[in-house]
């Protein structure tokens, strides 16, 4: 299981546009992907409702995990999106 830990820098947190971009990229990738706020319960990264409900704000750390073909690549992309200010 590959993993990335990133601090969310966007002013709006992982809401609005960053959340939609994040979920679209996750949904377009083959591996199963989860995202968790800090050490909280991981949720399906392909679910906009689950990602919004995490209520990730600026400065929060998220842990993104993926398993399967292409896991590393998609994690790199998602980490960039989550960390983008």
């Amino acid at each position: 299981m590959a993993e990335r830990r990133v601090t969310v820098e966007s002013e709006t947190g992982l809401h609005a546009r960053p959340a939609a971009t994040f979920v679209r990229v996750a949904a377009g990738a083959a591996p199963d992907i989860t995202v968790a706020k800090g050490d909280g319960e991981p949720v399906n990264a392909k679910s906009i409702l689950a990602v919004l409900a995490l209520d990730v704000r600026r400065g929060d750390t998220v842990v993104i995990r993926a398993e399967g073909d292409g896991a590393e690549e998609v994690l790199d992309r998602l980490a960039l999106i989550a960390a983008a200010p």
């Binding site: 546009r17 949904a27 399906n44 679910s47």
Partner: peptide, 16 residues
Amino acid sequence: EEILGAQALMARDPEL
């Protein structure tokens, strides 16, 4: 477009 696009994502939510 951004707002409705996000709503479309909700309707296509796999967890839902």
